[in-house]
Design a binder for these strands. Sequence first.
DNA 1: CATTTGATTCACT
DNA 2: GTGAATCAAATGA
Length: 135
Amino acid sequence: MITETEAYIGPHDLASHAARGRTKRNEPLFGPPGTFYVYLVYGLHWMLNVVTGAVDYPAGVLLRSLEGIEGPGRITKTLGITGQLNAKAASKQTGVWFSEGIRPTRKRVVRSARIGVDYAGPVWSAKPYRFVLTE
DNA sequence: CATTTGATTCACT
DNA sequence: GTGAATCAAATGA
């Protein structure tokens, strides 16, 4: 069960790695939806993202917490995910995929500002693009 | 080619 | 509350 996510939407989103155009690092974000975007931050933590936008439109979702695992860096550490999954598709072929679960009511999803994106400026760092599943 | 900087976490003070 | 760990890619000279 995924319990916390953050959205990074489009080339105009200054908090997104895609804000400064297509680069070698964010290339997977421009790929087809369902593709994983995995990258290293601070030299030690892998971040797991899923591409959600159409081809050539950079949009993705960062998985911040799963049930029982809090923190994006801990998810990858616990699941053993590294850069080898980058640009791979979410499917049984690659070993990591999503299965149908329950659909929470809207009331259980709380929106808030994204974390650790102060560099994006006051406007974009304040966008309520963080989604947390509550009890 | 040198420097800067993170979609963070953990250990201390 | 503050700071270190640690590295690849982006940016600048």
